[in-house]
Design a protein around this nucleic acid. Structure first.
Lengths: 121, 121
DNA sequence: GTAACTACTATACTAAAGTATAGCGCTATA
DNA sequence: TATAGCGCTATACTTTAGTATAGTAGTTAC
């Protein structure tokens, strides 16, 4: 494991770099389709068409674009198998896997927040 | 504290409701300005003009719009003081305060992820 | 009286994100 | 030979997000 404690303290003291650093993470899930894609891949590696079928209403254009984004950001790994015809598999990288815990915290907060807001109305 | 453990388990088993629930949280910080606004208010209550000055390049139109969004979502509380002229104060609600821990997890993941990605290049 | 501060709103625009529809090159099956 | 599946890409379009610029109503200071 890498040490980030020192860095964390530093960043938390500077609002500007705090916003920049959090934005890095936010960009991983920004847009309409990245979260569905990541969630789908969280259940295991999948091929292009499988993702297209699993994610309702996504177009191949968006799926292709977002997968490229996620690959460039080191969240998803793309593997081409030399079968005939070629098959392509997508899976989460280690970083992608570790992102699950961020999603879990978001999920928990979302549920609690909903209860809070509901309760006050 | 409210119990959400049962609900958590349930939602994690259904990809669709998982995505919906995480999206609830994501919408709180979506867009270019919500994160800067929340971060700024995390340091204490502020008036409109103070926020406008603290957040570089934001226009009053966007600040006003995003503050309304955040207020409607129960993240920010707006208080009008009957001074002359009126002053308006914005502050984080309890939910808004508790959102800080989501931001912290994002920050941590972002830093670790950056180290991972850098290391592999 | 004019300039400045407060907390905004209105109108018009540009840029970015997402959608719709079609088609490519390849192969296997009927 | 026609149809379907695979993994996409191209073009054109709409919708949403964000920007630029100006102005409102009230009050205070010079």
């Amino acid at each position: 494991m890498k040490k980030i404690n020192g860095e964390l303290k530093q960043i938390k003291q500077c609002p500007e770099s705090f916003v920049l650093a959090v934005n890095d993470t936010l960009n991983v899930v920004s847009g309409k389709w990245k979260l569905p894609i990541i969630s789908s891949l969280a259940f295991g590696k999948k091929r292009f068409k499988a993702l297209e079928r699993e994610i309702p209403k996504i177009t191949p254009r968006m799926l292709s674009k977002e997968l490229k984004d996620l690959e460039m950001n080191g969240i998803v790994k793309r593997t081409v198998h030399a079968t005939i015809p070629v098959t392509v598999e997508y899976e989460l990288t280690k970083s992608g896997e570790s992102f699950k815990k961020v999603l879990n915290v978001m999920l928990e907060w979302g549920l609690l927040h909903r209860k809070n807001v509901m309760g006050k109305k």
